[in-house]
């Protein structure tokens, strides 16, 4: 078919690459949420303050987030190699890709969190304070539950972005489907491997998006 011969594909390698991609995406999404969610909450809480010190904190965090978001991921990946080595002890394999993936995606997710929190009705927050809620209670019991659909949508977008980031991290020895597609398809002209690897990534993204949308719908009460 179109001069392609799929019989040559090494399915064990394909399976391993798929597994690696899922692992990279999964762990980095987990850590991205663990770091990005509080960061987003801090951005949201500090953005509206009249206090000069708090305003300053916001400006500093916001500036750092913007820097991390403006550096192209490939450059971030390479420049973070020493730091990666320091954190996880290696720059290779699945483990070696997680720190740069998280550092690249967390600021992005933090902005998405900040935006979803801003969508929460200010009146509801005011009502909670009027009932004697502390700031912590407002965050846990009002902001997070009320913005849950938005947060899930943000996590979905982040997960999809991470899938494409994993492909780039493949270039510096990370492994996974993207790495397979580049190594075989691009460097060795084995189109078949590239097509299947890309196809798998497309399927993965579709599944992520559908699952995310379904969760968003499930939690939307408006």
């Amino acid at each position: 078919m179109w001069g392609l011969d799929f019989s040559q594909i090494d399915w064990t390698e394909m399976k391993q690459a798929s597994y690696d991609t899922l692992e990279m995406m999964g762990y980095s999404l987990l850590f991205t949420i663990i770091i990005g969610l509080p960061l987003g909450i801090i951005l949201y809480m500090t953005a509206r303050s009249n206090n000069r010190v708090i305003k300053w904190i916001y400006n500093v965090i916001s500036f750092l987030v913007n820097i991390l978001r403006s550096v192209p991921f490939v450059i971030l990946l390479i420049s973070l190699l020493p730091l990666t080595k320091l954190i996880v002890g290696t720059t290779l394999g699945v483990t070696g890709t997680i720190p740069p993936l998280v550092i690249g995606a967390a600021p992005f997710f933090a902005r998405l969190v900040e935006t979803s929190l801003r969508e929460v009705d200010r009146g509801v927050i005011e009502a909670a304070y009027a009932m004697g809620a502390s700031t912590g209670q407002v965050v846990r019991r009002v902001l997070l539950p009320e913005s849950l659909p938005g947060l899930i949508a943000g996590a979905t977008i982040t997960a999809v972005t991470l899938v494409s980031y994993t492909a780039m991290s493949g270039m510096v020895g990370g492994g996974g489907l993207g790495d397979l597609a580049i190594r075989f398809g691009y460097y060795r002209y084995e189109k078949e491997v590239m097509i299947i690897a890309v196809l798998f990534m497309i399927i993965l993204v579709q599944i992520l998006q559908m699952a995310g949308d379904r969760l968003v719908r499930h939690f939307t009460r408006k």
């Binding site: 009705d121 009320e146 939690f219 009460r221």
Partner: peptide, 13 residues
Amino acid sequence: IGMIFQHFNLLSS
């Protein structure tokens, strides 16, 4: 001190 509002301000979730 209880308070009620023009736009109710209920938790939609």
